[in-house]
Nucleic acid binder design. Sequence first.
DNA 1: ACCTGAACACCGTTCAAGT
DNA 2: ACCTGAACACCGTTCAAGT
Lengths: 203, 203
Amino acid sequence: MARPLSPKLSLDLIAEEALALIDSGQPFGVNALARRLGVTPSSLYSHVSGRDEIVELVRARMIPDVGMHPDPTLPWDEALQATLWAQRRMYASHPHAILLLVELTITSPDVVAFYARLADLLTDAGFPESDVLPIIEMLDALAIGFGIDQASPSAIWQTSDTSSRFGRLLAAAEQGDGRSDHAFELALSLLIDALRRRLEGIH
Amino acid sequence: MARPLSPKLSLDLIAEEALALIDSGQPFGVNALARRLGVTPSSLYSHVSGRDEIVELVRARMIPDVGMHPDPTLPWDEALQATLWAQRRMYASHPHAILLLVELTITSPDVVAFYARLADLLTDAGFPESDVLPIIEMLDALAIGFGIDQASPSAIWQTSDTSSRFGRLLAAAEQGDGRSDHAFELALSLLIDALRRRLEGIH
DNA sequence: ACCTGAACACCGTTCAAGT
DNA sequence: ACCTGAACACCGTTCAAGT
């Protein structure tokens, strides 16, 4: 029972099951993945160079979700807003993926293509070349920061202190997705507003 | 040679050496830390409940750095800017710490106190109560996002494509700290500007 | 080409034993 | 109270062997 007549594994299968494992909330690992695939851990190394490549496969599989790519027919600010919300929905669907993705350099062409479209959007909107990359990095930082916020245990801050202003704020605050969504909405409207003003200042 | 006359370990020593290990760039772990301390891994469990508590000790040790706490004598926008830059400098000094910190709930009273001061700053500035926590979360997301940006390998995006606009932007971009600092500066000025405008709109 | 099974050098944690 | 050393159930990866 060494080599089967038809392969038991494929890159697609590996990526799919890896994402399923991640979404299940159990810790991601080569061994756990192999177990799910009904295969020995070492079998995976016939298809993949190791753990990192599996994570890259997962990243590539997450991106093509609906609505990620900016719509070029929309005004830049609306297109930007829609894209960032789509990105947020993506991270929301796979909250446990983000910490895995964040420590690897992005190599998937699909993902690079996404950022390239974002760059085109900003350039076409009229932002100077020197602004484009910093803005993208800023948006990326925000998306990652909020993505992690969503992945974190529901309470970021844990305190029994209800006497201070902050303690009372925490006690009165929304919990879970609502809290995080609210903050994201505020951040997005503030930033796009600021970008709009910056663009007006230029022209 | 079981129990020594004077203890070989202490919480302070553990935290100090843990941070040193993290800053060295080597992967953080209980075993590696014990090796550095000249001690058996199991010895650590006489002082600490496990890996997570060690990470919390590190967090508490990182915060009291100079300039972190907002200065109440300054105008709110200047105090906010100074605090966020201080926070950024902190993450810059310990780039490898952030991914460890990010997955644990904050329990250290010192750290909670820092966020409490931030809440006071915003309330005193005149922001409505319902704004304060979302704004703090937004700032936190930004700090974390940029912190991770700094911890990442110098190139976030890796592409050989120099024909597209994005490819050329990447090729022409600053490298390393300068790139990240530039984006952070832009983000901060945009956000504080937007906050200032929001405050004016309220009063 | 593709899988298995044994092996390797690691993890984090527990626990009896020693002083 | 505080450390050691052995043990446990895990990691990710390599490699010879099998078809």
